[in-house]
Design a protein around this nucleic acid. Sequence first.
RNA 1: GAUCUGGUAGCUCAGUAGGUAGAGCAACGGCCUUUUAAGCCGUGGGCCCUGGGUUCAAGUCCCAGCCAGAUCACCA
Length: 503
Amino acid sequence: MINMLSEQEIIRRENLKKIEEAGINPYPADTYLVNTTAKEIFENFNPETKNYQDVAVAGRLMMKRIMGKASFAELQDSTGRIQLYISRDDICPEGNDMLYNDLFKKWMDLGDFIGVKGYVFVTKMGETSIHVSEIKLLSKSLKPLPIVKVDAEGQVHDAVTDPDFRYRQRYVDLVVNPEVKDTFVKRTRMYNSIREFLNGKGYLEVETPILQPLYGGAAARPFKTHHNTLDMTLYLRIANELYLKRLIVGGFDGVYEFSKDFRNEGMSRFHNPEFTQIELYVAYKDYNWMMDLVEEMVEKVAIDTNGSTKLQVGEHIIDFKRPWKRLTMFEAILEYTGIDISSMDENELRDVCRQLHISVDLSMGKGKLIDEIFGEQCEHLLIQPTFITDYPVEMSPLAKKHRSKPGIVERFEAICNGKEICNAFSELNDPIDQRERFMSQLELGKRGDDEAMVLDEDFLRSLEYGMPPTAGLGIGMDRLAMIITNSPSIQDVIFFPQMKKEG
RNA sequence: GAUCUGGUAGCUCAGUAGGUAGAGCAACGGCCUUUUAAGCCGUGGGCCCUGGGUUCAAGUCCCAGCCAGAUCACCA
């Protein structure tokens, strides 16, 4: 292993040794009391009142400009970078220049964690800096960081752009690409905004099982695992719908959960094997009510994260301001293809698919065919947030049949930037209808649909006790985060996206 | 899973017709010596993704594999 070290890694280990030999602990345990940050100093320092005359900050050493008895350096803490002015006679005791000549100038490497104390001033060059009176090594770095540098001509050096590197070593990505941190801060703000909104309405945040004896609530292939003590097969959840509805049966008026879900399917820049949804169920409401809630909530999320309802997303400016456009699925298909499919049977739909060059197979039922037409011909064209309502019953085995339109369920999706961001319905609470829907799913499964739902007797039992009319909602948090942060890939909004093993 | 593109120094990338491996930044040494250096001079650093093949000779051409990205398919 030791002979695999690069020249720079060997030098850092030698520096580490010299530090230890000088009696300095390169990894001290004691708390380093910090009293401000780079950002705070930049925002609040006033050269006239001379505040910040006794500061202590800590972070990584990111730049050294070594001169004679006085040098400059840059320290990067969690909020940003600030310049340090370090003069030998200020940090060294009389007659012993080791702290400056050796520790600072030679043994400290870029990337080392240091703590400094001193006072804030503005240099002749006009740069707010800390005049250091005390410097302490807090943690030695043994691997060189690719520190981004912009030279006098504005050329950027060393920017880490290789996605493989960035995703596998996110810790490095975060240190050297500050905008990455912003993305994840926004993602958390998004969660906080939604929590605040839903808690304000009195809904309860809950937790339900991730390991489930039966998977349900969505059409997807699951991950399968095994519990040794129980000696039983368990599945990682693909959705939490069925558990949250059980809680509505149990008497809660509104419950929601941010749930990590797992689907054993293909990966792409829109799909990670584990992803996050928020699901919300509210008793005595229907899907029309839920549409209003989604508009209100997502508009608030946009404002809370970006300060505006309008966001730049790729080439488009997307405006989440209420109200959003609403179209039924048939209307959308008519609008984008000119074909009215509202009264077609399975064979006619098959012909339409052929006409539109959409590949079909025999496992596809009527609902799937309609969904294909919409997905191929309409979805990617919907850039501004748009509600698509009234889906075919075959595609929605957990949604309530439409109160007046036969063959249709009370369901909507919100489409934005050409992708679904949420899915919601008036929840099916008729236990006899629900059993029949499960049975037709089993039929689809026999026709070869390996994503068809399985029958969940315990869920049916809960419905038989009675579930109030309920509106349910699922929002793909990663997809929403991609839009909110203008990220082209799901991997940009997940700290540690799934990767093949290295080497 | 399919197709295309890529993998060369710590990082970002060049590498011509197949002829001993290059730059910038980073590193090391020196200059400079007290509010700037984003500077100047010099030095070191490579399993050219892996394994086969063609050739007198392969980073370069061919085949296979691994990893990544993009597009497509399935899905949120």
